[in-house]
Design a protein around this nucleic acid. Structure first.
Length: 403
DNA sequence: GTCAATTCACATGAAAGAGACCACGGTCTAGTG
DNA sequence: CTAGACCGTGGTCTCTTTCATGTGAATTGACGA
């Protein structure tokens, strides 16, 4: 009577006292009514943007800070508050938020402009049109109705990395070409060194105002967690010292509030799944493990075959966590390619693939010079042994390599 | 022993090609009145 | 006459190759003490 068992399960599930009262609050896209420990930044942004209310063009702003320091949140919050006023007073102001990191959405020049046009209700094909034409379309759309556009470009470094800074130059220049409409850019970046790589012209016009978001400290994260936890959980379901521990975890990693919230959410899910009514410290530990494991496995599974093969070669070569070099990896990789019938890529490409895997945090690859014996990358694993075995297994299965 | 030149094994950059995907306009074809 | 199928052209985008240049310290070998 399998069916009966399942019905029972669902029924008892419903009867059970839920741990979460509102899970959405812990999701990263949630904007709370009140922002903590970012008063200074909120006021500064507000001060810079305020002229827009009188119809003047505000300076462009650039927001820096590591992940989870509340940049996006603060920018969204401030513009939302601004919009409340403009709607009351019927001022023609529009805010568009674009996350440039989202693949297939806004990670190239064409796609960004197409995405902006979509915000204005125009349908633009995902590809096929010349970029000039899309720009032209954008210009006429913008200028048709006099208004002021606040354009928030999140993770702008990703966009520039791929599309070049010409795009920003075009955007900052638009204002002189449009008659009725003005654009103010709000750039957000995780990378503090980002503007150094920009064309000086772009740099000076883009970062007329700069704002740095310092990491939260453990106490601040704790308060943020407390406020969210009030909304997200039943007060009794939080174990003793839980939030403190959670905050400490996150503070260890450069004060990443997003991570702290995720940790709390996953810990809650684990507790719920284990039929417990309270989240305890050990759930936090498990949550941390699970997040890391899921992240790595997710990355590994979504990599292209060539990357997977390269990674497998690295995993096998770095058996005792000793450093290995690009050359060794490449010959092992070639062997695997032969086994699976995959066409091997050139060493040049594999060199880049290794660098990409490094960026993803699965391996650690440092360029070292061995003097007379050349220059190469010394590659080490940066995931723990248990996970290595798991990844190896997944990859071997995926690629059909057994050694 | 000192110091500059050499050398290795790649790293790193730039440019260009291949192939997938897509829009658009023109042409062809079959169905309809 | 018209809607839909089909084709060629021209565009973007990603992944890859090819060619060229760069790099940093161990090693080598000339030189002088």
């Amino acid at each position: 009577m399998k069916e009966k068992g399942l019905v029972d399960f669902f029924e008892t599930y419903l009867l059970k006292k839920p741990i979460f009262t509102n899970k959405l609050v812990l999701q990263s896209n949630y904007t709370p009514d009140q922002i903590f420990h970012r008063d200074e930044q909120v006021t500064q942004i507000a001060q810079v943007l305020a002229p827009v209310l009188r119809g003047d063009k505000p300076s462009n702003i650039f927001l820096y800070g590591k992940t989870g320091t509340g940049k996006t949140l603060t920018a969204k919050y401030t513009t939302q508050q601004l919009l409340k006023i403009t709607q009351q007073k019927k001022l023609p102001i529009k805010v568009i938020y674009v996350n440039c990191k989202l693949k297939k959405l806004a990670d190239t020049e064409y796609r960004l402009v197409a995405q902006l046009l979509r915000e204005y209700g125009k349908q633009i094909p995902p590809t096929g049109l010349p970029t000039d034409e899309v720009y032209h379309h954008f210009f006429t759309t913008l200028d048709k109705e006099a208004h002021h556009l606040l354009l928030i470009l999140d993770e702008i470094d990703q966009l520039i990395g791929k599309a070049g800074d010409e795009l920003l130059y075009n955007l900052t220049r638009i204002n002189s070409e449009l008659k009725n409409t003005q654009i103010t850019l709000i750039g957000i970046s995780n990378d503090l060194m980002f503007t150094e790589t920009l064309d000086p012209r772009v740099k000076s016009s883009l970062s007329e105002e700069e704002l740095i978001f310092p990491p939260y400290n453990a106490l601040q994260i704790q308060q943020i967690l407390q406020e969210r936890a009030k909304l997200a959980f039943d007060p009794e379901s939080l174990g003793e010292g839980l939030l403190e521990k959670c905050a400490a975890f996150a503070a260890r990693e450069h004060g990443d509030a997003r991570r702290a919230l995720e940790l709390l959410r996953v810990a809650g899910e684990i507790a719920e799944r284990q039929n417990e009514t309270q989240i305890k410290i050990n759930h936090l530990d498990k949550a941390e493990e699970k997040i890391e494991r899921d992240r790595i496995l997710d990355i590994v599974n979504t990599q292209p075959k060539q990357h997977q093969t390269t990674l497998l070669a690295i995993l096998h070569a770095c058996a005792q966590n000793t450093g290995v070099f690009t050359g060794e990896i490449y010959s092992l990789y070639e062997k695997y390619c032969e086994q699976t019938g995959l066409r091997p890529l050139t060493q040049r490409r594999i060199s880049d693939v290794i660098a990409e895997l490094d960026m993803l945090g699965i391996i650690k690859a440092n360029v070292i010079s061995k003097g007379r014996y050349g220059r190469t990358r010394e590659i080490r694993l940066s995931i723990n042994e248990v996970l290595v075995q798991k990844v190896k297994h997944t990859l071997a299965e995926e690629l059909g390599i057994w050694s």
